Structures are given as structure tokens and as C-alpha cells.
Amino acid sequence: MKAFYSWAALGAAGLALLLTACDSTPRERQAVARQELAKLDTAARNGGRTLHRLGRQAVAYDAANRARRATPLSPREQRIMDQQLLGGYADHIGELTVQTIAGAYGELLRATRVRQGGWQLRDWDYAQNTYQRLNQQLARIRLDLPARSEVRIRAWQAEFVALRARRTAKDLQTATKQDKND
């Protein structure tokens, strides 16, 4: 939004230059044009610095995420997360049927909504793994799934992805709000 206002201000200055062009000399117009170009140059330089800083911070954030994801998940911790997110469905993900898979997704979303506020990034990695294995089972039985159940499951999938994306956006925003003089 800030960029819009600076472009609007520059546009207004250009309009003022055009309107006063009839009442000024070429030398006066040239001086005004130089002033406006100096303002544009300063805005471009400041914008470039900001983009450079944000780019460095985003690269550092991405590198930290890649390093975290490169570390294998602990099977023990995964079983604990499965139990927390799926309850009674946790030990039977690969055996879920058309009749039970919607219940598993419902349980996953209820638990995610409650717990996600206190999760660290690694907790999200475990939750994402649980979600992916549930999606793999859905892919195996999907052709036999009634449309009503599939629509409900797709809504839960969209909500899970939205919760995860919100956390990612929040983390990226936090990473790029560091000291501007980095």
C-alpha cells in the first residue's frame, strides 16, 4: 500500500508539472524535472535495498527449513503425533475404509485446530506426515467414496492446508521483520 501512495504522489507531481508548464520557462521545467527524477532515484534506491534485505532474509529462512526437513522424522515421535491427531484411527491409517476415512479426517482437523497454536515447526512436519499418509489411503479408496463424503474430506483438506500456510506465512513474516540493518 505504501508503494501505491509514493507512486500516486509522484503522479501528482508529474501532473502539477504538466499544468504549470504553460506558465513556466524551459529552465524552470528542467529544474522541476531534475527534482522529481532525484525523488524517483531515491525511491528506487531505497526499494532496492529493501528488496535485497528481504531476499537475504527469505533465503536464510528457506535454508533453515530445508535443513530441518532434511533431518528424518523419528518413528517414535511420529507415532505419538499420529495418536494425538487421529486418536483411535492412528494405528490403522493403511486400513481405513470408505466408511471410516471421513471420521479420521474429522479427528485430524479437530485435533489440529486445538493443538496447532502451540506447535513448533517440527511438530508441523510430523502433522504433515500424518496428513500425507491419510491422503495416500484416501487415494487408494477414493473411487468407492460417496460424493458427499469426498466433498466433506476436501473441505477438511483445504482447512488443514490453510492452517499450515498461515503458520508458514507468519514464520516468513517474522523472519523478514528482523533488523533492517542486517
Rank of each mutant, 00 (worst) to 15 (best):
G47P: 11
L17T: 09
G106T: 02
T20W: 06
D179R: 10
R113Y: 07
T50G: 15
G55H: 11
A102T: 12
D41T: 06
A16N: 07
I101W: 02
D23E: 10
R164N: 15
R110G: 09
N135E: 14
A64D: 05
Q35A: 07
N181A: 08
A64S: 09
L96H: 02
A16C: 13
E28M: 13
R110E: 05
D62E: 14
G118V: 03
D82P: 12
Q116H: 06
P26Y: 00
T97I: 01
L143F: 10
F160W: 05
A169W: 11
R148C: 04
E107Q: 11
R166H: 11
P146Q: 00
I141E: 02
A64W: 01
A9L: 12
Y126E: 10
R79Y: 08
R34L: 15
L143C: 04
A104F: 00
T97F: 04
R45F: 12
L134M: 01
V59E: 15
D182N: 05
L86P: 11
N135A: 12
T112D: 09
W156Q: 14
Q116G: 02
A90R: 10
R113N: 05
V59F: 12
A67M: 04
I80V: 14
R154F: 04
L15H: 04
Q99A: 09
G106N: 09
D171R: 10
R152Y: 01
G87L: 08
L17R: 03
A8P: 07
V98Y: 00
A21C: 11
D179C: 10
L143P: 11
Q57N: 09
L86S: 07
G48Q: 03
R29P: 03
L172F: 10
N135C: 13
Q157M: 01
G106I: 00
H52D: 15
R122V: 08
T112F: 03
R49V: 12
